[in-house]
Design a protein around this nucleic acid. Structure first.
Lengths: 194, 194
DNA sequence: TAATAAAAACCGACTGGTCAGTTTGTTTTT
DNA sequence: AAAAACAAACTGACCAGTCGGTTTTTATTA
């Protein structure tokens, strides 16, 4: 079977995500990952040059997901995209929420390595640009009130980021899906012309 | 001089903040901290029981700062407090901004230890409660429009948290002090009755 | 005020353990 | 048979924390 190799690889990745999230990059040793994945160290270093390389592979996957999300919403009407974003929030809280500790781990690692850093923040930049142009278009089309697209974009991103952080700080403090939905609704409606 | 001991202690703390921020909790070794502070390991372990204990001491300091900020704004009129918050933003970006990687480091450490965790999120809970009651009061007094105080509080905190994160992701992407000021102004004015 | 005892602060070599990465050899696939 | 995939013992560096001893500060007493 030529699948065996690939299965080993994905087993490593699966275990790495789990252990990096639970214990952090440094505290999760290569031995731990191997044990969890049920493989040997030799197999690990056959598939990944180093622990850092595994980290970069995970980072790439994560960034790809973000880029895809931007790409798929690229050519839809402006207000629709925004409402879609609202609907997407509960999903974000389910998925990104669980993975946010790892993302923060990523980000802290990245912030200490210029090359990784530049790679890792590129999607954020694209995300902001996407939103800015979306709002700009909405204003020009007349579906949005007169706003500063730059500022509005940053505020929307802030709300999402901030709510995610809060949901992790205080998991049982609120029905976060509902908070997210209501907040985004408020923002979107304050942008839309009546 | 009875100050010598205290100076050593603060030298340790100063170096710890610097190195934890730059390299992270794990990567900054006790030896590194001692070397940077210009003291010996014996001196270090005379002042702190363990590396973890040093970490907790830093955490305490940080949490104290937050609690003080809440306390000092406790008995001022509602709209005034909000405007004060707006004015305080540039300061937050100067101080908390530089320290946020360390705070995240703290927080990631904390999230893996139930006891530390409970301690570290308590100020956030107080902060949220403070804001909620502040908005509630404003609504009852008639200086604010009818809003859900819970939701409004979470949105304001989100904006602050989210902008801080963004300012770190994209340091040169915007004049963050201005963005923060404008955003908070928008939020506050949308709350206040005309 | 000076001498001295006790305690606090500090030094730095050392220990036991961990961990990323290597190497040598074996099994499985092509 | 050749190459890819895997196993696991091993290496060298590093690191948190210890320990026996020294210096400095503080308290006590004459």
């Amino acid at each position: 079977m030529q699948q065996r190799s690939e299965e080993t690889r994905s087993r490593i990745i699966e275990s790495a995500i789990k252990l990096f999230s639970n214990r952090g990059f440094n505290a999760a040793s290569v031995d731990d990952i191997c044990k969890d994945a049920g493989i040997s160290k030799g197999a690990f270093y056959h598939h990944f040059e180093s622990k850092q390389a595994l980290f970069l592979a995970l980072l790439d996957d994560w960034l790809q997901t973000i880029d895809n999300a931007i790409e798929t919403s690229k050519d839809k009407p402006v207000p629709e995209t925004f409402m879609q974003m609202t609907e997407a929030f509960p999903y974000i809280f389910e998925t990104a929420g669980a993975g946010l500790p790892m993302f923060l781990e990523f980000w802290l690692q990245a912030s200490r390595d210029e090359k990784i850093w530049q790679t890792s923040i590129a999607p954020y930049r694209r995300y902001h640009k996407h939103f800015t142009s979306l709002i700009k278009k909405g204003v020009e089309e007349g579906s949005f009130v007169e706003v500063n697209p730059e500022l509005a974009s940053r505020m929307i991103i802030s709300t999402a980021m901030g709510l995610l952080l809060q949901s992790l700080l205080d998991p049982k403090g609120a029905k976060w899906e509902k908070v997210a939905r209501d907040s985004t609704n408020m923002l979107v409606h304050s942008l839309m012309k009546k």
